[in-house]
């Protein structure tokens, strides 16, 4: 199970990469495996403001659907448009080409998990 050490996580299986006053968000390897082949990714619009824990979109596969929750507060500065035509990018490379949303932070993110803590979450749910 790939859980890059340089990222932060949520217990709802989003990952976060902080880049200065911006953050990039996607879903984890574990999440995409649980969902199976993605068929649709619904993302917020550029300019939307997000609160921590707010529902910001959803992902769908043939047999499952899952909501996306914003791990932090800020304004959407970019979304990965490639996913609308190629949701499989999330399956193929969830941490790189499968990124979902870029957010300009309005506050310092709080309560995010380290890779080690997230690994424990995954271990619990895998059972």
């Amino acid at each position: 199970m790939s859980i890059p050490a340089d990222l932060l996580y949520t217990d709802t299986h989003e990952w976060v990469r902080i880049e200065g006053d911006e953050a990039v968000i996607g879903i984890t390897q574990f999440a995409q495996e649980q969902l199976g082949d993605l068929t649709f990714v619904d993302l917020p619009a550029v300019g939307d403001t997000l609160a921590t824990g707010q529902e910001m979109g959803s992902v769908e596969s043939v047999k499952a659907a899952s909501e996306l929750y914003s791990p932090l507060a800020g304004t959407v500065s970019a979304v990965n448009d490639a996913l609308s035509g190629a949701p499989e990018l999330v399956n193929q490379s969830p941490y790189t080409d499968g990124w979902m949303v870029r957010v300009k932070l309005s506050a310092t993110p709080e309560g995010l998990l380290s890779a080690a803590d997230y690994e424990a979450v995954v271990a619990r749910e895998a059972h």
């Binding site: 596969s61 043939v62 659907a65």
Partner: peptide
């Protein structure tokens, strides 16, 4: 497009 439907999305 079954992910819209009640047997998958339930209350949503």
């Amino acid at each position: 497009l079954q992910a819209r439907e009640q047997h998958i999305r339930r209350a949503k």
